[in-house]
Design a protein around this nucleic acid. Structure first.
Lengths: 219, 219
DNA sequence: TTGCTCCTCACGTCACGTGAGGTGGC
DNA sequence: TTGCTCCTCACGTCACGTGAGGTGGC
């Protein structure tokens, strides 16, 4: 894959990734794609998985690159579990891109057990398609669920969280519905952007209330 | 007030504020405290309100400092509404610090109408103490609610958001309760830190689900 | 041949943090 | 007198972004 292919594939899950960011990660020694005779970067499947690992650690755990590099080094030297998967058949990988990850892939990328993923599916917290594919954000869901599980929060505890999130999405849906049903393409595009903005505002309001509530728990 | 007093007062609402950050904001021309003969910075009430404005804009609207400075300049030159309040009696201000802001102060700092604040109180979304004081985070709540109101989301729509946040705080409460009831001071301190961490994880999980949901609304 | 993609290298930027070395206030 | 707080100034850091100027691929 060339650099633009990588950017396209990662864009859904990591919208902020850029050409200069990939170059920077390379300069910092986090990835090392091979080069063509002319100097073009050629990313393998394994490189893309490695990038996904780096970007996930940044986003979900706010780790600085220095720490992420150390973890990668440990994994490379075989002292840890192989959380960064080996390259797989290119054919299967190509078919997967537009469909979202499988349950196994989510477990792998989130470095969690397959059992946890199954538990989350059983509890209705992850919802695979009939083809067994999940939303790309499921990786974030499983890493957060794993952290919560360490403190004794189980999947069943999280059901009310999921259903309240569903209700808030419904609220957004009702508000943008009139726009979405219009015929003009611009109106429908605006409906999409508005939905994202409203969702963000609702999520932040919820976050603010939770923060205020928990800080009152232990003054 | 000296610099350490300012840091102490702002710490609850903005935990990440530091000495070097205040110096940096001064260097960038966002505030200009007067100096004592010996060169010590002396912050007035107006300076602290101005800082609160800057930090709120950063946190709630992700604005870069350059843009915040331009807004402040506009306000200073009187071309906009005086969103940065004039200095008030020091006596009243000193009494307010440990108690949280009043309804009027929240309206002022959030640059929203007093009517909106009253609506939020009526709907049970803001809960003043018997002394009429609110949580410092209420400023963030009202600015978010104002943005939502612009898109037709009213206070009554937000009730389920508030009650679901309450339930998630209850969940955290149940989990840390055993720790909090212990006698050792270290266990109680740990309970507080754990509550904050768990709240953060729950809030991020909720945010992830809302984001995934709204992005499905308009593909 | 012609866009388009990709390359390097140098420099810029944004928001601070760190530490040395020194002075002020109670 | 003695900690403690505060000061400046220079430099470092983290994670990129922005061009200029040039080459490769279909």
């Amino acid at each position: 894959m060339r650099i633009s292919d990588v950017l396209r594939e990662l864009h859904d899950e990591f919208p902020s990734v850029s050409h200069s960011k990939l170059r920077f990660l390379e300069e910092q020694g986090l990835i090392e794609p091979v080069r063509t005779a002319a100097g073009y970067r050629q990313y393998s499947r394994a490189d893309v998985e490695r990038l996904r690992f780096v970007l996930t650690q940044q986003r979900d755990h706010y780790l600085p690159l220095r720490v992420i590099r150390e973890r990668l080094d440990e994994l490379d030297s075989g002292r840890g579990a192989p959380a960064v998967p080996a390259p797989r058949a290119v054919g299967a990988a190509r078919a997967q891109a537009p469909q979202g990850p499988t349950l196994d892939e989510v477990a792998e990328r989130g470095a969690v057990s397959r059992e946890l993923v199954d538990d989350l599916v059983t509890a209705g917290l992850l919802r695979p398609t009939s083809a067994g594919r999940l939303d790309p954000r499921s990786v974030e869901v499983v890493t957060l669920a794993a952290s919560l599980a360490e403190h004794g929060v189980e999947a069943r505890h999280l059901r009310s969280l999921r259903s309240s999130a569903d209700r808030h999405v419904d609220l957004v849906d009702q508000i943008v519905a009139p726009l979405r049903s219009q015929q003009a393409v611009s109106a429908r595009a605006h409906a999409g952007a508005l939905a994202v903005d409203l969702g963000e505002l609702l999520a932040r309001l919820h976050t603010t209330w939770v923060r205020a509530g928990v800080s009152d728990l232990a003054p």
